[in-house]
Simulated scan of single mutants.
Amino acid sequence: MSHFSTIKTQYNNRKVLLQSLKQMGLKVTEYQQPVQLNTTWNSQGFANLIVERAQINSSSDIGFLYEDNTYKLVCDDYDLRRSTRPNFKQELGSNYTVATAQKLG
């Protein structure tokens, strides 16, 4: 059985995070208050920014929970590894770093 993990990140700029996800070809739904992520498993995760599972052919959504001035990644690692984006975390990290560098000039 899978479950959601909450992973601390250094993603603290919402615009850069959204831009990075868009560059990956992903559509993000935003919520003011955290909402529950969708999954076929009996697990729960909550997030403010959500990439729906159908976009990555996964059993679970990917989310970002805004807490303590950063966005924490909320995902099911098992499902993510089996999705069409098994390197999602690495790809996002690279995109976020490049976008931050471009923003800083």
Rank of each mutant, 00 (worst) to 15 (best):
M1D: 03
S2K: 05
H3E: 13
H3S: 12
H3D: 09
F4M: 01
F4P: 01
T6P: 01
T6Y: 00
T6A: 01
I7V: 09
I7F: 02
I7P: 00
I7C: 01
K8S: 13
K8F: 03
T9N: 10
Q10P: 00
Q10H: 13
Y11W: 01
N12L: 06
N12R: 14
R14L: 06
K15D: 15
K15Q: 15
V16C: 11
V16Q: 09
V16G: 07
L17I: 09
L17P: 01
L18V: 05
L18E: 13
Q19T: 13
Q19A: 11
S20P: 06
L21S: 09
L21R: 12
K22A: 11
M24V: 10
L26Q: 06
L26A: 08
V28N: 11
V28T: 14
T29K: 15
T29L: 00
E30G: 06
Y31H: 15
Y31L: 03
Q32S: 12
Q32N: 10
P34N: 08
L37Y: 01
N38T: 14
N38F: 02
T40A: 11
T40M: 15
W41P: 01
S43H: 10
S43Q: 05
Q44L: 03
Q44V: 05
F46L: 03
F46Y: 11
F46V: 06
N48D: 04
I50V: 15
V51D: 05
V51G: 10
V51E: 05
E52D: 14
E52A: 12
R53H: 14
R53G: 07
A54V: 07
A54I: 11
A54G: 06
N57C: 02
N57Y: 11
S58W: 04
S59G: 15
S59F: 08
S60Y: 10
S60N: 08
S60P: 08
S60Q: 10
I62W: 02
I62C: 03
G63S: 02
F64A: 04
L65M: 08
Y66T: 00
Y66A: 05
E67T: 11
D68F: 06
D68K: 07
N69P: 01
N69E: 06
T70F: 04
T70I: 13
T70G: 00
Y71G: 00
Y71I: 01
L73T: 03
V74M: 04
C75R: 12
Y78W: 08
Y78R: 14
Y78H: 12
Y78C: 13
D79K: 02
L80G: 04
L80I: 09
R81C: 10
R82T: 10
S83T: 11
S83V: 03
S83N: 13
T84I: 14
R85K: 11
R85I: 04
R85W: 15
N87I: 08
F88T: 05
F88A: 03
F88M: 00
K89Q: 12
Q90A: 15
Q90D: 13
E91V: 13
E91S: 09
E91N: 11
N95D: 09
N95A: 13
Y96K: 07
T97H: 07
T97P: 02
T97C: 05
A99R: 12
T100Q: 14
T100I: 08
A101S: 12
A101Y: 00
Q102L: 15
K103V: 05
K103D: 02
K103T: 09
L104K: 06
G105I: 06
G105D: 07
